[in-house]
Simulated scan of single mutants.
Amino acid sequence: MSYFRYKSAYCAGLIIPFWLFVGVMIAGLLYPDYSQTNQAMSELGAQGAPTHVLSPLMNNYPLGCLFIIFGIAVSKSFRESKLAVFTGLLISIHGIASFSTGYFSCDVGCSLENPSTSQTIHNYSGLVMFASLFLASAAWGYLGRRLLQSSPFSVFSIVCSLAALVTLPLMGKALEAGHYFGLFQRINYGASVVWIAGLALLMLKRSRHMQT
């Protein structure tokens, strides 16, 4: 395994949740009366939003690059496992979908009624973002023990996958109720990006071990 060759790329995965947190917080502060608890992250880049231009430049595009870089590193580090290579591809696909959700913004307020073509593409891109990281983390529930000899990471991967899955219906109910959608969305996506950081951290530790 070529762990030591991709240390910078592993670091890209490690900083993803921190970048996301800071980026969303700053964009939210620049959006008057924006609610991190009730509003979707997509509303930060929606048509007519005060942060319409800034949000994708601060969040979607740089995060997309980080995901792609890390995904390529995962695929190259585990060439002996087709499933692991596929998870790297899924992570990179997530990065591409992040670009898409930033470029194709949702309508004002991200209303689901009569969405424009841009919002329709945005919504499908968001679905790809969820599915890609969910499948990747679920796969590492098996691969963590097999490739990294880490049962704790396998359990961690399964827990993060379940957290992302369980919050989906909660997001739906919150959307209907008009409250706490933002909270459940952040838990949903947060579980996935924390998993990315966990994988990156474990691979960084392995890279140091390979060098000693």
Rank of each mutant, 00 (worst) to 15 (best):
M1I: 06
M1W: 08
S2H: 11
R5Y: 09
A9K: 07
Y10T: 00
A12Q: 04
A12C: 15
L14I: 07
L14V: 09
L14F: 15
P17T: 07
P17I: 08
W19K: 07
W19A: 13
W19E: 12
F21A: 15
V22L: 14
V22C: 10
A27P: 01
G28Q: 07
G28F: 04
G28V: 06
L30H: 05
D33H: 14
S35D: 09
G45W: 07
G45R: 06
Q47W: 09
G48F: 02
P50M: 09
P50W: 09
H52N: 10
V53H: 10
V53Q: 11
V53P: 00
L54V: 07
P56W: 06
L57G: 12
N60C: 13
N60T: 04
L63Q: 12
C65F: 15
I69H: 00
F70Y: 12
F70L: 04
I72F: 11
A73K: 02
A73N: 01
V74G: 00
F78I: 03
E80Y: 02
A84P: 03
G88L: 00
G88N: 03
L89Q: 10
L89W: 13
L89S: 10
S92R: 03
S92V: 01
H94F: 11
H94Q: 12
H94L: 06
I96F: 14
A97R: 05
T101R: 06
T101V: 15
T101I: 15
G102R: 03
G102W: 08
Y103D: 04
Y103Q: 05
F104M: 05
F104Q: 02
S105T: 09
S105W: 08
C106R: 02
C106D: 03
C106S: 06
D107C: 05
G109P: 03
E113I: 13
T117N: 13
S118N: 12
T120G: 08
T120R: 13
I121V: 15
N123D: 12
S125G: 15
F134K: 02
F134T: 01
A136V: 01
S137M: 10
W140H: 06
G141A: 09
L143P: 02
R145S: 14
R146E: 15
L148D: 04
Q149C: 09
S150G: 04
S151D: 13
F153W: 12
S157R: 09
C160F: 08
C160T: 14
C160H: 08
S161E: 00
A163G: 11
V166D: 03
M171E: 13
K173T: 10
L175Y: 12
E176Q: 14
A177C: 02
G178R: 01
H179M: 10
F181R: 04
G182D: 08
L183M: 13
F184A: 04
Q185T: 04
Q185D: 07
Y189A: 14
Y189P: 00
Y189N: 11
S192Q: 15
V193T: 15
V193N: 00
V193K: 02
V194K: 01
V194H: 03
V194D: 05
W195Q: 01
W195P: 00
I196F: 04
L199E: 01
L201N: 09
L201G: 15
L202F: 06
M203K: 00
L204A: 07
L204G: 05
L204R: 10
M210D: 13
Q211K: 14
T212C: 09
